[in-house]
Design a protein around this nucleic acid. Structure first.
Lengths: 385, 385
DNA sequence: CCAACTTCCTTCGATATCGAAGCCAAACAG
DNA sequence: CTGTTTGGCTTCGATATCGAAGGAAGTTGG
C-alpha cells in the first residue's frame, strides 16, 4: 500500500494534510511504516512546528487516539487559475483547501510579465487581508489555459496566449514569489483536483473542461499523465460535419471549431443571439431558448463521438465533465448518451460519467495537491533544524 | 532512480536478468542501494544459486568488475502466444529471451481445457527436448487474442474465442503447470516486449498489432496500462466510409470491420483474390498486385485517422506498428503520413513511428518480462534457505 | 618500470527501521 | 463498579542499510 509518493517524512505530512490520517495509528496503517517509526517521525514533525497535537479523536473500541493536524505555521500555497480575461486567486492550505479566495479581471494578452506580477501581488495582498501574513508561503501554483512543457515550465508554442510562447513562466514566478513555483495547464490541474477531492479511489480518470475552449486532463494510475507536455488534447480531432469550419490550428473541422463555447457563441451570434461568456449559454439553455438547446445538443453529439474512441482506448474508471458549460444539462445528457450507446460494453460497464464535484475551484485544489507532492525539499529542510 | 519494481532483492535479480547490470558496481548505480548493501545481497543470491560469478568484465578505467550472470539453475518460464489457429511456444530465460522455440497448430475453438492442456504438455516437452528438463520452471505465461480481466485472469465476455468466456484461464494454467501463471492479451504482451526490448527509454508507448484483427497495447509511464481490462481497444471505433459494414460487436462501421486483416481478405475475395492468412496479403502487396496495394492503403488511411485522435490525446514517445501486416510497407507509410499530417505539431514533434523491432517474438518477450516482474515471491523463498 | 589515479569491492561503525512486548486509556460486559 | 478487551502509543533489542574508509586490481602517463 506504500507508494513512492508516500515515502519519507514528507509522506506522513501528506497523509495528515489531505485528511487521510488523523492519528499516529492511522499513519502507521496507511504508510506501511512500523508504529514505532511513525512515532519517531511525528515527534520530529511536531518539533519542527509542522504538526500540532490537539485533543483526542474518536475511539475505535479502545484507547482514543491523540489527534494530529497541520500546524497553522506549517504554511500555505499561493495559487492562481488564469483564464483569458479573468483569474481566480486563492491562498490554500497544504492540502489545497482554500483559506481565502478572490477574483481578478485581467487581460492575459498584455503578456506574461505584467500579468504574473499583478497576480502575485494580488495573491500576497489576499493573504495579508485574511490575516495570513505571518504564515510561511511554501510554494506558488499557476494554472494556464494552454499547453505547458512539464520539464521547463514554459508555455509551448501553439497556444492562444499571445506573448506567452516560450516565456519561462515557472522561473519568472519562482523569482518573483521567492518560492518554488508550479506551472500547469488548467485542465490538468482540474483533473488532479477532481481526482484527489472526489474520487481518490479511481486510478484512471478523464476530466473534460468545457468552457470557451475544450480542455482535457488525464489521470493514469493515480498520477497526472502529461506525455511530452501535450497529452490530453482532444480539441483538434477532426470531426465530420456538414459545414466546414477552419480551426485556428490550420486544419478544417476540429472539434474545438464546432463544439467549444466560443464556437457555440459564434453559431448563436449568427442567429442574432448575442453571447459573451459560455456561462450565458447555460442560462439560455436553462431559459429554454430552443436555438441554444439545439446548438448544445449538437455540440454534445460531436464531443461524445470523439470521447467514444478515447473511452474505448483508455478505459477509465470515470469521466468527469467540468467547466462552465458542464452546467448545461442537455449537453451532459447528450454526451452521456452517445458514450453509453457507442462504446464497448466492456468499457462502459463500470464507467461513471458525472459532472465536476469540485466545481470551479477544482483547478485550485489540484494545484495545491501538486505543490504538496513537490514539497519534499522544504519539508526535509524544516525537519533538519 | 529507484522505483518500486526495483526494490528488494528481486530488483537486483531483475537488473542482471535484463542485462542492465553485470557487476556489483553497476547494480549499486542502477538500484540506488549502497555498494555495501549490494554486496551483501549479491552474496545471498550467489548462495541461493540464482547468480553465478564468471570471470571479469571490461575495465572502465580501474579495477575490472567481477561479472555476474544468472545461474543456469535460476530457472525458466514457459510461454505460449495463442492465436486462433496457431500457438507459438517458447521456453525463455528469466529475462524473456527464448532458449527454445516451436510452433503448434491448434484450434482455439475446441475450448480452453483441451487447448491449454495441449499447450502446457507441448511446452514441457519442448523444455526436455532442449536439455532444460532439470532447470526449475518458475512461471507460465499465456497470451490470448482477446480481452483479459487483469484481476481474475479470465477471458472477458465479448471475445472471439468461443467457449473461453469467463473461463478461469489463469487458475487452470496455475493448476496444470504447478507454477504461478500469467494470462494477458496478446497486444498487451507485445507492447511490454517492445518496450523492454527496444525502447526502454520511452516511457509512453503505443503498440498496434495488425493481424487478422486489430489490437493495441499501451505503456504509460513505463508500465502496462490495463484500465479495467479493456484498455487499448481501438478496433471498435466508428469510422466514416462509403459502404456500411456491420461489425461483430453490433455496431456499424467499426475500424476492425474495414481495416483488419480479415476485412482486407474479405474485400480481396470479393475481387476473386483468395487469401487465407494476413501474411499472404503482404506477399500480394510485395508482388505488386494493385488491388492488394490499394486495399492496404485504404486501410492505412482509416487506421491513421483513428490514431490521430489517440496520439493527440495520449502524446506518446513512440508508436510501434507490429503484427504480420506491418510488413506491408504501403500500409505503414500511409499510417505514418496521415498521423504526421493531421496531428498537432506538439504531439508529433518528438514522435517516432516505427515497425516492431522485436518482431513476432515480441509477445513472448513481454510475457517473460511480466513474469519476472511478478517474481518477488519465489525469489524471496529461494533466498530464505 | 613506477607513480598516480580510477574503479571495484569489502570492512566496519553509525544510523534507521522494524517488530515484539508492554504500558496506557478508553469501551464494554457483567 | 470492576474486570476484560480493544486499540493507541512507546520502549527496547534485533536487523538492515548506509556511508566513510581502505584494500585490491586494474589503467594511464611519464
Amino acid at each position: 500500500m506504500r507508494n513512492s509518493r508516500d515515502d519519507g517524512p514528507a509522506g506522513l505530512l501528506r497523509l495528515v494534510a489531505t485528511g487521510q490520517a488523523e492519528s499516529r495509528a492511522e499513519l502507521a496503517r496507511l504508510s506501511g511504516l512500523a508504529a514505532s517509526s511513525v512515532s519517531l517521525r511525528v515527534e520530529q514533525l511536531l518539533d519542527a512546528g509542522l504538526f500540532a497535537e490537539e485533543g483526542a479523536g474518536a475511539s475505535r473500541g479502545g484507547r482514543r487516539p491523540r489527534r494530529l493536524r497541520l500546524a497553522r505555521q506549517a504554511g500555505v500555497f499561493l495559487v492562481a487559475d488564469l483564464g483569458a480575461h479573468h483569474a481566480r486567486l486563492a491562498v490554500v492550505d497544504l492540502a489545497g483547501a482554500p483559506l481565502a479566495l478572490s477574483d481578478l479581471t485581467c487581460d492575459i494578452a498584455v503578456g506574461p510579465e505584467k500579468t504574473l506580477t499583478g497576480v502575485i501581488d494580488a495573491l500576497r495582498a489576499l493573504a495579508r487581508a485574511h490575516g495570513l501574513g505571518d504564515v510561511p508561503v511554501r510554494g506558488a501554483g499557476i494554472g494556464l489555459p494552454g499547453p505547458v512543457d512539464p520539464a521547463t515550465g514554459q508555455v509551448v508554442s501553439p497556444s492562444r496566449m499571445p506573448g506567452w510562447n516560450d516565456f519561462p513562466v515557472r522561473d519568472f514566478v519562482t523569482a518573483q514569489a521567492g518560492v518554488p513555483a508550479l506551472v500547469e495547464n488548467d485542465a490538468n490541474l482540474m483533473a488532479v483536483g477532481e481526482h484527489r477531492h472526489s474520487r481518490p479511489a479511481c486510478d484512471n480518470l478523464m476530466v473534460i473542461k468545457l468552457g470557451s475552449g475544450i480542455g482535457c486532463g488525464v489521470i493514469v494510475d493515480g498520477r497526472l499523465h502529461r506525455g511530452r507536455g501535450a497529452a490530453g488534447d482532444i480539441s483538434h480531432v477532426r470531426i465530420l460535419s456538414e459545414a466546414t469550419v477552419d480551426c485556428s490550428c490550420g486544419h478544417p473541422d476540429c472539434l474545438e471549431a464546432h463544439a467549444s463555447g466560443a464556437a457555440l457563441a459564434a453559431a448563436l451570434a449568427a442567429q442574432d443571439i448575442a453571447v459573451e461568456h459560455p456561462g450565458e449559454i447555460v442560462d439560455l439553455v436553462a431559459d429554454g431558448v430552443p436555438q441554444a438547446t439545439s446548438a448544445v445538443r449538437t455540440a454534445g453529439r460531436l464531443i461524445g463521438d470523439v470521447l467514444t474512441a478515447l473511452v474505448n482506448f483508455f478505459n477509465p474508471d470515470a469521466l468527469i465533465i467540468g467547466g462552465s458549460l458542464s452546467n448545461a444539462e442537455p449537453l451532459v445528457a447528450t454526451i452521456r448518451g452517445v458514450i453509453y450507446e457507442r462504446c464497448l460494453p466492456l468499457a462502459t460497464r463500470n464507467l461513471e460519467i458525472d459532472t465536476s464535484a469540485a466545481g470551479r475551484d477544482a483547478s485550485i485544489l489540484g494545484a495545491g495537491h501538486l505543490l504538496l507532492d513537490a514539497s519534499d525539499d522544504w519539508i526535509d529542510r524544516a525537519l533538519d533544524r
